[in-house]
Write a protein that binds this DNA or RNA. Structure first.
Lengths: 195, 195
DNA sequence: GTTTTGTCTGACAAAAATGTCAAACTAATC
DNA sequence: GATTAGTTTGACATTTTTGTCAGACAAAAC
């Protein structure tokens, strides 16, 4: 298949990603996606057979894409603190490009069809877990299960972005003020993790 | 309206809440809800006119319910540390009863129709912000914007539950092991916040 | 230049979900 | 016990979304 590549298949996937992750239209129909891509809906079915398959494919690729970015940062040859900084920067860049991606993923993760195709703990994660344990022995971070350290890192980083609209209203913050808040967090997160 | 209260209206709402928040069927149809409640779908329309209105009503009540619980804990006459502990316990209890509520709320908060009907910062929140500032002056917590302190609290508490299925797989954890992890977090979160 | 093969489209069919209405039912009220 | 008014239902209509299929189109192969 796909011998005479016209780019339509990729175009459809990219458009779907934009609509879901950048524009936050979680309930977009195949027609919406086709329209946005400037093709007919029939073509979407031609390449992906069904909506579910398109969904799954977009989700899986997004998942893989994220994992690759995580792995690149977490297995880099850098001191621990630099790794964390790199991770935070990478994460913020990702959110800036795709503000709704996190929210979308959370939804999927909690849906009943969720199933990742992993065999085992990734090598990069294994390296990072080693790092964490070493830092604990050095005393730069508190002793805890590595999984909990990672949960803390992700939590402090991701959650504020997931609840941004709510917190903006709760604390009566403008966009600029919220950005400033996020900016402050960068240093603060490091301090909290490396106590 | 509702002069001859048969309990059907409340039954439908309660059933919807159970399906959404406890069973995690985010895309349940009105038919699904009617079936689960043991009534006809027509009756759902009789009481709520449209699916959207039912959704909105269930969401708003859930939001209000949460806010009330938060307020009760945050404005209690207790030392700061006890308040935090109460908050954490309340949150875990809530999640145990409705495992998918958080995820549902995040979705809604990030949808484009989201709009809370609040006038101003709630009195309870104002009290808690005062508490936070006092603790900062006493030196029991690091100096930061109160909003950031609250974000930290929520993040550390809520995020692990949102990504539970993913982390379970990533770290190859059983349900029991994950529960143990969560249990450890209780003390840890307090330590991280009160350094 | 004609055949072949992959790409794309319009028209149609099917399915899924929501909404409406007249009429049946039932518990209060008179 | 007849009337009234709120409640419930089944049948029907509409809307929305998805899926299919025969055929048009275009580029490569012969």
């Amino acid at each position: 298949m796909a011998v005479r590549d016209t780019g339509a298949e990729q175009l459809i996937k990219d458009t779907a990603k934009r609509i879901f992750f950048a524009e936050g239209k979680r309930n977009a129909t195949t027609q919406d996606i086709a329209d946005a891509a400037g093709v007919t809906r029939t073509l979407v079915n031609y390449y992906f057979r069904s909506k579910d398959i398109l969904f799954r494919q977009v989700f899986d690729e997004a998942m893989l894409d994220m994992r690759n970015k995580f792995d690149a940062v977490l297995s880099a040859e850098l001191p621990f603190r630099k790794k964390l900084e790199g991770f935070i920067d990478m994460f913020y860049a990702e959110v800036t490009a795709f503000p709704y991606k996190e929210s979308f993923m959370i939804s999927e993760i909690n849906s009943h069809e969720f199933d990742v195709d992993k065999k085992e703990i990734s090598p990069a994660l294994r390296i990072f877990i080693k790092d964490i344990q070493q830092e604990m022995e050095k005393g730069t971070i508190k002793k805890m299960r590595p999984a909990n350290f990672m949960l803390n890192l992700f939590s402090l980083l991701a959650y504020p972005l997931l609840t941004r609209p709510l917190f903006k209203k709760l604390f009566e913050l403008s966009d600029v003020e919220f950005e400033r808040l996020l900016h402050d967090r960068k240093k603060m997160i490091l301090e909290m993790l490396l106590c």
